[in-house]
């Protein structure tokens, strides 16, 4: 490699090691038709998935297409408020701007009636008692704070039912 050396008069100059330039861009996101329908139902504390007309799998939250068939999912299916922990992780990193006391548990939860898990928080149970197959239910924000977002569900908590057998969720685990 070519060595580049500074001219004599610049030898003593302090090098500029970094510059900070702040960039702020604002966006107005469009959820799309499928997600809008889902989120509108969330404001009624209902979880409504969509069934693919080809493979008949029920997707939640719906994104507009069946990811394997590439066709719109339009048939709506009301899902349970409870589900099964398919897998999970115990988080010890202060990730959510310190909003959560660590450790906390993030889990893949397959809602009753759905064919795919969603990711959400598990609370109201010691983190080291969370396990695969555990049955959990949604805990909603107070009615006047509920909006069109999955954050209207504060977290999931054990619902007291016996564990689901591995066979019942192993396709997604």
């Amino acid at each position: 490699m070519t060595d580049i050396s500074l001219p004599e008069r610049l030898r003593g100059a302090e090098p500029v090691r970094s510059i900070r330039t702040f960039a702020r861009l604002e966006y107005a996101y469009t959820p799309g038709r499928a997600a809008s329908r889902f989120l509108n139902q969330v404001t009624n504390k209902r979880l409504v998935g969509q069934r693919c007309p080809v493979c008949e799998k029920v997707y939640v939250p719906p994104r507009g297409s069946c990811p394997t068939d590439g066709v719109p999912t339009e048939d709506e299916v009301e899902l349970g408020q409870s589900g099964t922990i398919v897998s999970f992780c115990v988080v010890n990193v202060p990730f959510m701007a310190n909003l959560m006391e660590i450790p906390y548990v993030g889990a893949l939860i397959q809602l009753d009636g759905a064919d795919i898990p969603i990711m959400h928080l598990i609370q109201e149970v010691p983190y080291d008692q969370v396990h695969m197959g555990m049955r959990v239910e949604a805990v909603w924000l107070p009615d006047d704070e509920i909006g069109p977002t999955l954050e209207s569900i504060v977290h999931f908590r054990p619902n007291g039912e016996p564990d689901a057998p591995y066979e019942s969720y192993k396709d997604n685990a």
Binding site: Y29, P31, A35, L39, P61, V86, S87, F88, C89, V91, V93, F95, M96, M100, Y104, G106, A107, L108, I118, M119, H120, L121, P148, T149, L150, E151
Partner: peptide, 18 residues
């Protein structure tokens, strides 16, 4: 993303369950 499920734990949190 306002309408997507909240991200709770970054890349590690995504892959740890797998």
């Amino acid at each position: 993303m306002p309408f997507q499920p909240p991200m709770h734990a970054g890349a590690g949190g995504y892959f740890a369950p797998h």
